[in-house]
């Protein structure tokens, strides 16, 4: 049992505005008892980092239906630069098979494609939030 609900930022970066998917996922997470900070599409990396910082989220979920997932390595670098390395990143939407290894190598924790169930997503986010808090704790003590 977590001391307080998982805090998750659900967002979209880049030019694509199809936000049905991110809304549905936000509702899944809410129904699982999490606190979801939801943003409209078209966010910039800098904004996402700032939001993650101000809202002290455990996990950032990015929805990508076009090619916006290719920005993920930049987002991960920006989070690292802001000393937010503990935050876990997941991506959902349409991510071509051959581009998935690149994202995972860059530090994305999980990728959800079409057909992913709400249970899978919720379970993964729960696990990642525990990881994120443990990583933050370690960073604070050092």
């Amino acid at each position: 049992m977590m001391a307080y609900p998982e805090r998750v930022l659900v967002t979209k970066i880049g030019f694509d505005g199809h936000d049905r998917g991110s809304r549905v996922v936000a509702a899944y997470l809410r129904d699982a008892g999490m606190e979801v900070i939801y943003t409209p599409p078209w966010q910039e990396i800098e904004t996402v980092v700032k939001l993650a910082m101000q809202e002290d989220v455990d996990v950032v979920g990015v929805s990508s239906l076009a090619t916006d997932h290719l920005i993920m390595p930049d987002l991960i670098a920006a989070l690292r630069d802001a000393e937010m390395r503990h935050v876990r990143l997941i991506v959902g939407g349409i991510i071509p098979q051959n581009e998935q290894p690149e994202l995972m190598d860059a530090g994305v924790s999980a990728i959800f494609g079409p057909g992913a169930t709400s249970e899978e997503i919720v379970e993964t986010v729960r696990k990642l939030a525990v990881e994120a808090r443990a990583a933050r704790e370690t960073a604070e003590v050092v």
Binding site: D31, G33, V36, I37
Partner: peptide, 9 residues
């Protein structure tokens, strides 16, 4: 949410 304890902020 009074049901799940979750929220969309």
């Amino acid at each position: 949410s009074p049901v799940s304890g979750g929220a969309v902020l």
